[in-house]
């Protein structure tokens, strides 16, 4: 296993600040969990802790951005995107501010804390907002690259980070390009489009399918907004079918985003792997991946249904 995507947060902000960028960070009492404490220790005068106050955290970041800073926010995904959603909409996005939300602990891999803490709606909540960019890194290297991309690109960003350790799928010099999806494995029978920790599961599923003589193309849809329609259309034009895989509700997330576009420009038979219109629950990350049908065998089964 590689490092968790959250482990990239504080460390990458330090790199960027060392390089001379006007980075600031605002936290809401979870600086150890998000790893923003590392940035705070290195740059104490650029780090603010709002206490347990996510709405305030978000708009303080907005104010910092208005004064020329690149302002990153912390907390957990459920609170950073959910509790403060209307602040993100009407202040951060409506003003097109240079605020980067990268709260951690998205998805069911939060584990035993349970459903109240497992954000399964955050991609949906963020991608509906005008001006917002949405990045879902698959591993530590992609997370680091996503944070660098967000810092280098003006405007609001949501970067989805997780608590659990995840297998490495990208090289350490991976460069994240805005609006680009990455074909990690070429195939001809079915497209597996995945984001976040599901990229590693999709790669494993492709191995399972290969054993059955099914050739799966695996795409890391690392950037959900703007979406790389060209790469997706090229792939499904070849394979004729697609399985979308995400650690998120099947409602409103990456699968929805892809379906919306393909249904207009290149409709193909589709299966969406994700959490089916339900809340998360307590359990270990591995148990929950299996419980909610997000594991490689479930992805492979959905692909077989289509082929």
């Amino acid at each position: 296993m590689g490092k968790a995507t959250r482990a990239a947060y504080g460390a990458t902000l330090i790199e960027l600040a060392d390089e001379g960028l006007p980075i600031t960070a605002v936290e809401a009492d979870l600086s150890g969990s998000t790893t923003l404490s590392k940035f705070g220790e290195r740059y104490p005068d650029r780090f603010y802790n709002a206490g347990i106050a996510e709405a305030n955290m978000t708009n303080v970041a907005a104010g910092l951005a208005l004064e020329g800073n690149i302002a990153f926010t912390g907390s957990f995904a459920i609170f950073g995107t959910g509790r403060a959603w209307e602040q993100v909409r009407n202040t951060v996005c409506y003003n097109d501010l240079n605020v980067k939300l990268a709260p951690t602990h998205a998805g069911v891999t939060v584990g035993p804390d349970g459903g109240s803490h497992q954000a399964l709606e955050d991609i949906a909540l963020m991608r509906v907002l005008p001006h917002m960019h949405v990045l879902v890194p698959a591993d530590f290297n992609a997370a680091r690259a996503a944070i660098r991309l967000a810092a280098a690109t003006p405007g609001p960003f949501y970067i989805r980070l997780g608590r659990a350790e995840v297998a490495e799928v990208h090289a350490s010099d991976f460069v994240f390009e805005l609006g680009r999806a990455y074909v990690l494995r070429e195939g001809t029978d079915v497209t597996l489009a995945a984001c976040g920790i599901e990229v590693a599961e999709a790669l494993k599923a492709a191995d399972l399918l290969a054993a059955d003589g099914i050739s799966a193309e695996v795409i890391d849809v690392a950037c959900i907004k703007p979406l790389d329609v060209e790469t997706l259309v090229a792939s499904v034009s070849k394979t004729g079918r697609i399985v979308t895989c995400e650690e998120h509700s099947v409602l409103g997330g990456m699968g929805s985003a892809i379906s919306e576009v393909l249904s207009e420009v290149c409709p193909v038979p589709t299966r969406r792997i994700g959490v089916a219109d339900t809340f998360g629950t307590s359990g270990s990350p591995a148990e929950l991946i299996e419980h909610f049908g997000l594991d490689a065998p479930s992805i492979a089964a959905a692909a077989r249904e289509l082929v």
Binding site: D113, G114, G283, S284, E287, L288
Partner: peptide
């Protein structure tokens, strides 16, 4: 407590 399928979730349910 906190196990998969448990009545007692990590936070009160």
């Amino acid at each position: 407590l906190r196990k998969l399928g448990a009545m007692l979730q990590g936070h009160p349910d």
